[in-house]
Write a protein that binds this DNA or RNA. Structure first.
Lengths: 338, 338
DNA sequence: GTGAAAGCGCTAACAT
DNA sequence: ATGTTAGCGCTTTCAC
C-alpha cells in the first residue's frame, strides 16, 4: 500500500519538510545523507505522491481537458490525436469527456474539468447555432480561470474571449460545389449530420454558393450506415440526382457502399464526394473525392496555442484543400440528357 | 472568477458547514430558507467546487485512467471507444495516457494516474515479453489500491492479481493460417508490428500452427505505410510468395495499396489478409479477409468488470472469428506451378 | 438546525 | 541545512 509523505519522513527519521523537499523536486538544499535516506525509504515503500494535495496548493499543474463530440468518430478522433500528441510531448495529463454531441453534456463536462483544476480546456465539439447554448458556453468560459480553446466556429457573448482554431468550412463546401458545377451537376443531394452544428451548416452554405443553387439536404447520423441509408432514400425519391455529397467522409463511404451494392457505377452514373479527408478515402475503389481539413494539425495547434504564454485570445485559421480523386466525374446529364 | 465555498458561505450569511451541506449534496438536514439562500448565491457566483479538495477528503470518486499504446491507432482507438462509452454511461471521468508503446512511459503513466487518485486503471498497451517489464508492472499493480484491468496477455509476478480481458490471438493466427493452407499457400510472408508485444507474437505463433510451417516475418511500424513498404521489400526478395498477412489490418491495407499501384492482382496473383477487422476492411476493393477481434467490446468489458463490485480478479476471454472476404483465394501455385 | 474546529496530504513561509 | 507551522478548499465530526 502506498503510504504518505509523513510515513516516509518518520521512517527516514527526518521532518516532513525535508522529505517534501527531496521528493517534490524542490531545489532547496538538503544534505546528501538525508536526501539519500529519504529516497531509499520512498523507493522501498513505493511512495506515490498525492496529486490532489499538491494541486490544492500549487494549483493543478498542466492538465488539459478535451471535450469531444464522440470518441470513435474519425472527425473528433483526428483532432484528439493531434492534441494528445502535443500533450504527451509537453507531459500534460489529458482528460477526455465525450459529450455525445449533447450541448447539455458539453457544459456539464466543462464544469467537471473546471472543477478538476484543468488549466486548459479544449472544446472540440463543434459550435452550435443556438443562442441559449452560446450564452451558457460564454458563462462557462468567463468563470474559467484557465485557458479555453475553441475548435470550430463558436459564437460567444460580448466581452468573452477565447483562443480559436478554425477551418474554412464554407470554403470547403464551395470548392466541392464548384467542382461539381464544373462537371455539369445540376441535381445534387447532400447527406448531412446535424445542421445545427456550425461546421456542417457552413459546409452546406458553401456548397450552395459553389453550386449556384441550394441542394437537397437529408439529415442523418454522421456514420457510414447513416450515409448508406440516406443514399437509399435520396435515390428512391429523386431519380435525376447526379451527385451526392456527404458532409463527412464516413457518410460518403456509406454512399459508395450503397452504390456498389446496387450496381450504380461511380462516377459514371453518380458522383460521390465527402469532406474531411480521412486516411482511408484514398484506399477505396473508386478513391474518394473530398476536401482535406487538417484536423490533426488543428488539434495540435489548439494545445500549442494554449501552452504558449504570450497568447490570451487569438484565432488561427487553417486552409482547406480540394482533393479530387476518382469518385467524381462529369454529370451523366451531359452525355445522355434525361 | 470562480470563488470558493467560504465566499459563498459569507455572502449567504451562513457558516461554511451549512454551505457545504447544501452544495455537496449531503443529506444532512438544512432549513429550506438557508438552503435556498446558499443555492442562490452559488448560482450567482457560478461557484465551481474544487475537486482536489474533495478528493483529498473522500478519496477520488470515480475516475478511470486508461493507458493505451497510441491514440490514433485503430487498434487502441477501438478499445478506447468501448471503455469510454461505458465510462460515460457510468459518469466516470476518464484520463488517457498514450505510452507511445514505450514500457517506461507506460509505467510512468501508471504512477501518474495512481497519484491522481484513479480508482480504476486500464492497461491497454498490450503485454510485453520482458521479465523486467513484467516485474515492474507487477510492482505497480501491487502498490495500487484501486482496481487494475489488463487488456491482452500479460505475465505477472507471483501473487499479483488483476482483472483480465483477453482475446484468443493464437486462435486468430491459426484461423488465418488454416484458411491459407486450405487454399494451397506454401509461401507466406508476414508483415508484423513488434514481436515483443504478446498479441503480435501470439498471432504469429498461431499462424505457424495453422499453416504447418513458419512463415517469413518482417517487422515494421504497424501502419498503412509500414505495410506498403514491407510489401515492397517482401516481394522484391521473395518471388514465390503467394500470400501476405498483416498482423493488423492497417498493414494489410498498405499491402493492398502496394498491389494496386504495381499491377498485382489480389487475390489472383497474391492473397492478402489482415487482423482485427477494422470497419473499413469491408469497403475496400477487394474487401479484406481478416479476423474479427471484438476490441470495442473488450474495452467496454474492461470497465464493466472493474465497476462491478463482486469481482477482484477475473479473466474474461473473447472469441475471435475468421472473416473471409475477397482479398484471399487459391494460391496461384495450384493452377500454374512454378 | 446550525456553527466551530479538526484534518485530508502536501508545500512554502517562517523560524532555528 | 533542518524543523515547525500555517494553510490550500473542502467535508465531517463534534458541540451547541
Amino acid at each position: 500500500m502506498a503510504g504518505n509523505l509523513k510515513q516516509v519522513a518518520n521512517r527516514a527519521g527526518v521532518s516532513l519538510a525535508t522529505a517534501s523537499r527531496v521528493l517534490s523536486g524542490s531545489d532547496y538544499p538538503v544534505s546528501a545523507e538525508l536526501r539519500e535516506r529519504v529516497l531509499a525509504v520512498a523507493a522501498e515503500m513505493d511512495y506515490v505522491p498525492n496529486a490532489h494535495a499538491r494541486a490544492l496548493i500549487q494549483g493543478a499543474q498542466r492538465t488539459v481537458g478535451i471535450l469531444v463530440g464522440e470518441v470513435g468518430d474519425p472527425y473528433f478522433d483526428a483532432m484528439l490525436n493531434g492534441a494528445h500528441r502535443v500533450a504527451t510531448e509537453e507531459s500534460c495529463l489529458v482528460t477526455i469527456v465525450s459529450t455525445g454531441r449533447d450541448p447539455e453534456k458539453e457544459l456539464e463536462g466543462f464544469r467537471l474539468m473546471q472543477s478538476h483544476g484543468s488549466t486548459i480546456i479544449v472544446v472540440a465539439g463543434s459550435g452550435l447555432h443556438d443562442p441559449a447554448y452560446q450564452e451558457a458556453l460564454s458563462a462557462r468560459i468567463r468563470s474559467f480561470t484557465g485557458r479555453t480553446v475553441l475548435i470550430g466556429r463558436h459564437a460567444l457573448s460580448e466581452g468573452v474571449s477565447a483562443i480559436r482554431v478554425e477551418a474554412d468550412n464554407v470554403g470547403a463546401g464551395r470548392m466541392l460545389g464548384e467542382h461539381l458545377r464544373e462537371h455539369g451537376h445540376r441535381h445534387v443531394g447532400v447527406i448531412s449530420g446535424s445542421g445545427r452544428v456550425t461546421s456542417t451548416g457552413d459546409r452546406i452554405e458553401g456548397l450552395a454558393q459553389g453550386l449556384g443553387f441550394r441542394p437537397q439536404v437529408l439529415e442523418v447520423p454522421a456514420t457510414r450506415d447513416g450515409g448508406y441509408e440516406a443514399t437509399a432514400r435520396l435515390l428512391e425519391g429523386q431519380h435525376d440526382l447526379t451527385a451526392i455529397v456527404g458532409t463527412a467522409d464516413q457518410m460518403a463511404i456509406g454512399a459508395l457502399a450503397y452504390c456498389a451494392d446496387h450496381g450504380i457505377s461511380v462516377p459514371h452514373d453518380l458522383s460521390v464526394a465527402g469532406c474531411n479527408d480521412i486516411w482511408v478515402g484514398r484506399e477505396l475503389t473508386p478513391s474518394l473525392t473530398t476536401v482535406h481539413i487538417p484536423l490533426e494539425e488543428m488539434g495540435a495547434a489548439a494545445l500549442r496555442l494554449a501552452l504558449s504564454d504570450d497568447v490570451r485570445s487569438t484565432v488561427q485559421s487553417f486552409p482547406v484543400q480540394l482533393v479530387v480523386r476518382n469518385s467524381t466525374g462529369p454529370s451523366p446529364d451531359l452525355t445522355s440528357p434525361a
